[in-house]
Design a binder for these strands. Structure first.
Length: 315
RNA sequence: CGCGGGGUAGAGCAGUUCGGUAGCUCGUCGGGCUCAUAACCCGGAGGUCGAGGGUUCAAGUCCCUCCCCCGCAA
């Protein structure tokens, strides 16, 4: 079976590797164009491109596959397309090219958590279970028929980044099982139940600042769910902002945003809308990540007593 | 040449403006004290100040070159 793989970030790499080692003929790989990244704005290849090149597979990088990638894909004459976090919407014209269709690996238990950041949102919503789904891509956004699913427990304290790393190989294994069963002609295919469907939007960096009026449990979920990007931040009153990398709920109380402790012994404890949050790891501007207690050894705290902004207080 | 922060004891930092004895908060080791604590008191060990070169009587500090870490923007 001739397969074309479409993917971009790390999440897709295990699936590509699995296809290769399972013996599928991979006619080509589509991935997002190289982009200037990091310090110095150096051009960086996507992880999927790195992998494809290492495997000796031709790589295609249309800026917009719907516009300038159609002929390239058609010329590869795929029996099947596989997508895993490709990052571009496929048009009906694209979907019509592969003989069998397009299988997508999605990191949630569809029909819940449709959208481009299902792992983050599952944690943000306080879920304890999520999973991966293989589905037949159709013109809607993550609306196609479900093929196979596997549920996965979300570990206590697990961040979105960590869960992504854990889900990627699980998705790859599920993909191979899906293709095997398609070839055998016994793959289940179930339309999604629209009544149970939920959709969550892309993450924005505007989501990073903590709103201390939220319950402590919810703030901790945000720290986990928004890691590593866009991250979670708190602002001292003086304009300084630090990234909050790790936090846990603790039993204490005070007015929302009130600093209950900020020293080298106890670390940083801030009261929330309900309960309180202990920040256990943070990162100052220009600095590296560190334990909150280490931070206060060198930064004697002379900050404000409350982390709510004037705006928030007045609301 | 995208913008910017940083490298000083095991950890986190100050000291660099204007060259002149290596400091702080912790940790650690030894001793003491307390019913007790995020304890407290006394004492000690621990540093090629990222690397190399230059200027100087004298460089953590000034000049040149290089290495490494990090944030933003994309």
């Amino acid at each position: 079976m001739r397969v074309v793989f479409l993917g971009t970030p790390d999440f897709g790499v295990p699936s590509l590797k699995a296809l290769h080692s399972a013996g599928y003929e991979i006619a080509g790989v589509f991935t997002q164009p190289d982009r200037p990244k990091g310090r110095g704005n150096k051009m960086v290849k996507s992880p999927v491109k790195e992998c494809a090149e290492a495997l000796g597979i031709p790589v295609f990088q249309p800026v917009k596959i719907r516009a300038d990638g159609v002929e390239a894909l058609r010329s590869l004459q795929p029996d099947l397309c596989v997508t895993a976090a490709f990052g571009q919407i496929l048009s009906q014209e694209i979907l019509d090219i592969p003989r069998i269709g397009t299988v997508n690996v999605h990191s949630s238990l569809l029909p819940r958590y449709r959208g481009s950041a299902p792992i983050n949102w599952a944690i943000l919503e306080g879920e304890t279970v999520t999973g991966v789904t293989t589905m037949m891509t159709d013109k809607g956004l993550d609306t196609g028929d479900i093929l196979l699913q596997k549920s996965v427990e979300i570990l206590p304290g697990e961040t979105a980044g960590e869960l992504t790393d854990r889900l990627a190989p699980i998705g790859a294994a599920l993909l191979i099982e899906t293709l095997r069963r398609i070839e055998q002609g016994n793959c289940p295919r179930t339309p999604q139940n629209e009544a149970e469907a939920s959709y969550f939007p892309m993450l924005k960096k505007e989501m990073a600042p903590i709103d201390w009026r939220m319950p402590a449990s919810r703030i901790v979920c945000r720290v986990r769910g928004l890691s590593p990007w866009p991250g979670t931040t708190l602002a001292w009153g003086d304009g300084e902002t630090v990234k909050v990398l790790r936090a846990e709920e603790v039993d204490a109380s005070g007015g929302p945003g009130e600093i209950l402790a900020a020293d080298a012994k106890r670390g940083l404890i801030v009261a929330a809308g309900e309960g309180a949050v202990r920040v256990t790891a943070l990162q100052a501007p220009g600095g590296k990540a560190m334990d909150a207690r280490d931070y206060f050894r060198g930064h004697p705290c002379a900050h404000t007593r409350c982390l709510l902004t004037e705006e928030e207080k007045n609301e």
